[in-house]
């Protein structure tokens, strides 16, 4: 467990963690950290905070494109599967219907498009977020447990090229957080 600014435990420094109790303060603070040019930093909130993406300068995600590919794959797969199974590999006549006709194939094409899109969305989102993750240094902080309840945090990682033990601390202190601590891994 990290004490304030105690880096003498011999463990590697992960970074600083600043705590805020009010969402508006986090938005203000995030803008200042962004403007200071940091890259390896993050905000942690109990719910998606409106306006924080802009305040942090988070770029758009490519998830929709991946989902489009998944959906098209589902559509193609459903079309080919129905055609091959009912018209090529095992054709049989029933009610005088054609072996393969697009109208009768539409429901399954629709369903598999949705199914593969949804599966791609689900696994794509967790994959891009690099979750599930067994351990993260931030979980060493006791205060951080409230990031999923009612507190708002900014973390700046030590591996950021602009990270400086003194200057980064001064920046975070100037944002008037409720608490500021170092986190070690």
């Amino acid at each position: 467990m990290a004490n304030d600014n105690d880096t003498t435990t011999g463990r590697e420094l992960y970074g600083y963690l600043a705590e805020f109790s009010v969402p508006g303060d986090l938005l203000d603070a995030a803008e200042k950290v962004r403007d200071a040019g940091y890259e390896n930093w993050d905000c942690h909130t109990p719910f998606p905070l409106h306006g924080l993406d802009h305040a942090m300068g988070v770029k758009g995600t490519k998830l929709p494109l991946i989902v489009l590919v998944g959906g098209l794959a589902g559509l193609t797969l459903a079309g080919l599967m129905q055609w091959w199974m009912n018209a090529v590999d095992y054709p049989f006549m029933i009610s005088g219907k054609p072996y393969f006709g697009v109208p009768a194939a539409v429901p399954v094409m629709f369903e598999l498009t949705v199914l593969l899109s949804a599966l791609t969305t689900f696994f794509g989102m967790w994959g891009l977020n690099k979750l599930p993750q067994h351990h993260h240094p931030l979980f060493n902080s006791t205060r951080f447990k409230r990031a999923t309840a009612d507190r708002f945090f900014i973390s700046i990682e030590a591996r950021d090229p602009r990270f400086h033990l003194e200057k980064t601390r001064e920046l975070l202190e100037s944002l008037n957080p409720d608490a500021l601590e170092t986190v070690e891994d």
């Binding site: 993050d42 905000c43 942690h44 909130t45 109990p46 998606p48 905070l49 924080l52 993406d53 942090m56 988070v58 995600t61 998830l63 989102m125 967790w126 891009l128 977020n129 979750l131 599930p132 993750q133 067994h134 351990h135 993260h136 931030l138 979980f139 951080f144 990031a147 999923t148 945090f153």
Partner: peptide, 12 residues
């Protein structure tokens, strides 16, 4: 799943 409320995660 190791969710930590990260805003970069919230975004996606």
């Amino acid at each position: 799943l190791g969710w930590r409320g990260s805003n970069r995660h919230w975004h996606r």
